[in-house]
Simulated scan of single mutants.
Amino acid sequence: MTGKTDNAVLKQVLELGPVLAFLAGYVYLREQTVSIGGRDYDGFIVITGLFIPLLIASNAALWKLTGKVSRIQILTLVMVVVFGGLTVWLNDERFFKMKSTIVFSIFAALLGIGLARGQSWLEFVLDGAIPMSHAGWMALTRRLTAFLVAMAVANELIWRSFSTDVYVAWDTFGQMGAMFAFFISQSGLMNRHWQDDDDKTA
């Protein structure tokens, strides 16, 4: 029992640690400029560069610990590597800030394609973790698609209209809080369409 508890705590550390480290590093470096190879980088660029290998390492450790990494985590890692790499290479923080807009838009587009085909790809992504009827999954997918579009728009408005400090707070806590609030708000829908094993075999 203790081993399972330790693994659960370590899993949480591996999932949340890189985000908290990014926030702490940004707070420490945000007003500093670092010269590397004769080129000046502000704190946001530096911490972005450090965040990439940290996230890769945490995902590798998570895979070794649990034997799997979720599809959402894999996509997030790819986007961080691509757009974080562009941010550092071009010394332009806009690429990293656009990352969330693109991630939300991709998920919204994919879920929309599934809906057009009469399918809930959300159920596939979550591996059927929530025992709901097909109608329930379709309804939840429609709502999540609209929510992701709103999140993409919100990310664009925030990084374009506010300071980097505001963006970092939004990126590290705001998005996570909004997603949590969304799924909590869907509890009524999930309860209405809940199916236990007896319902499925009846």
Rank of each mutant, 00 (worst) to 15 (best):
V19W: 03
A57I: 06
Q119K: 13
F182L: 10
T2G: 11
Y26M: 02
I158M: 09
F22P: 06
Y26H: 02
A109Y: 07
Q12D: 08
L144R: 01
G128S: 10
F162M: 08
G112M: 01
F180V: 15
F183N: 00
D6T: 10
M98P: 00
D42T: 13
I47V: 15
R142A: 01
V9R: 15
F124Y: 12
V82A: 11
G114R: 02
G85K: 00
L77E: 10
S187M: 07
M151Y: 07
D198Q: 13
S185L: 02
I72K: 08
L189F: 00
L148W: 14
P131C: 02
L157T: 15
S100W: 06
G174N: 06
D171S: 15
F147N: 10
L65G: 05
W121R: 02
V125D: 02
T5F: 10
K99N: 07
T201D: 12
D92I: 06
M138F: 06
M1C: 11
T66Y: 03
D6Y: 11
I158L: 14
F107L: 06
D165W: 09
L126I: 12
L20F: 12
M98N: 03
F51R: 03
A60F: 05
M79P: 05
L14V: 01
T141Q: 03
R117K: 13
K99D: 02
K4A: 14
A8D: 11
F180A: 15
K200W: 05
Q186E: 07
I45Q: 03
S105V: 06
F83D: 04
W170E: 05
G174E: 04
Q32Y: 09
L55Q: 14
M190V: 13
R30V: 03
T48F: 01
A135Y: 09
M79K: 06
A8R: 08
V168F: 07
R71G: 01
F147W: 09
A21S: 13
L157C: 13
S187N: 08
G112F: 01
G84F: 00
L148V: 13
V125L: 06
F96W: 00
S185W: 02
L55K: 11
R39P: 08
W194M: 11
S58A: 12
V103A: 01
R160S: 15
M190P: 04
T101G: 05
T101Y: 03
D42Q: 10
D171H: 15
L86Q: 04
I158T: 11
D197Q: 11
Q32W: 04
L54A: 15
W63T: 00
R39W: 10
L50S: 04
L148M: 15
I56W: 02
A146E: 12
I113M: 08
F95P: 07
G17M: 00
R30K: 11
G188H: 04
D165N: 14
G136T: 13
Y28L: 07
M79G: 09
G67S: 02
R160C: 11
Y41L: 09
S133A: 11
G188N: 05
M179Y: 15
A152I: 13
G17R: 01
F147H: 13
W194L: 08
N191H: 07
T101A: 04
V27S: 12
D197T: 00
N7A: 14
V82K: 04
Q73F: 09
G25S: 09
R143V: 08
D6A: 14
F147K: 08
V166D: 12
S120F: 00
T2N: 14
L144F: 12
L14P: 07
I106T: 10
R117C: 07
N91E: 03
M190Q: 09
A129L: 05
F180N: 12
I184S: 12
M98C: 10
